[in-house]
């Protein structure tokens, strides 16, 4: 089967992402990568939990002094919404609606950028208002490493989706690029999965003590 063959909505396959051998390999390999990422984030969560509120003296802020729940709530809603918009993108990809798929991916990117802007605001706020920098305590190092690694994943995800959209802007949908879009959306959902644990374990549990 020629991966760059032109399709119509009538003969476009049900699961275009796994039609070619390359697509099947991407799909399986990417899930293996996500399993590895799960272990990576587990080690960062474990470190954070072990070092939470480990500060040299009482002049340093603790988790419950620092975190601002309304801001975290806004970030959570934005990222959750960007998850459903990328589900819409894949829905249109499977229905062979190239333009609609592009539009939903653009909305996903915009929401992701909004999330990232709030996270940057949050970090600068901590640094300026609380002098809570990367090196100020074991707690701050563990916090910035965990949440910052997630933020780096969001940044990478945004660059990835933008690159895919630009590179394939005039190609339309085919079996060559369908797995690429599919795998990028899996990555985006994984970012959301990690954030669900971050807002629960870091922010909400941080607030209760």
């Amino acid at each position: 089967m020629n991966a760059e063959e032109r399709y119509t909505p009538l003969n476009w396959p049900d699961h275009p992402e796994t039609q070619t051998l390359e697509g099947k390999n991407k799909f399986l390999g990417f899930w293996l990568f996500l399993a590895g990422e799960t272990v990576l984030f587990a080690s960062l969560f474990a470190t954070y939990l072990a070092l939470k509120d480990s500060v040299p003296d009482s002049s340093h802020p603790l988790a419950k002094d620092l975190f601002n729940l309304p801001l975290v709530f806004a970030m959570t809603m934005i990222l959750l919404t960007s998850s459903i918009t990328s589900v819409y993108a894949i829905y249109h990809m499977r229905n062979y609606h190239f333009k609609k798929m592009q539009a939903w991916f653009v909305i996903t990117v915009l929401l992701g950028a909004g999330f990232l802007a709030l996270e940057i605001y949050e970090f600068t706020h901590y640094v300026h208002e609380y002098h809570f920098t990367f090196g100020s305590s074991a707690f701050s190092s563990a916090y910035y490493t965990l949440v910052g690694t997630h933020g780096a994943h969001v940044t990478f995800g945004l660059c990835w989706i933008i690159a895919l959209l630009v590179r394939n802007a005039k190609r339309g949908l085919n079996l060559y690029n369908a797995p690429k879009y599919y795998v990028a959306s899996l990555y985006w959902h994984f970012i959301d999965v990690v954030w669900v644990f971050i807002f629960t374990v870091v922010y909400l549990i941080g607030k209760v003590g």
């Binding site: 996500l34 399993a35 272990v39 080690s43 969560f45 470190t47 939990l49």
Partner: peptide, 17 residues
């Protein structure tokens, strides 16, 4: 793959806390 990762993740976090 994912459930294997979840087991490792769970044990890692459990050990650290």
């Amino acid at each position: 793959f994912m459930y294997s990762a979840v087991i490792i993740a769970f044990v890692t976090v459990l050990a650290f806390v």
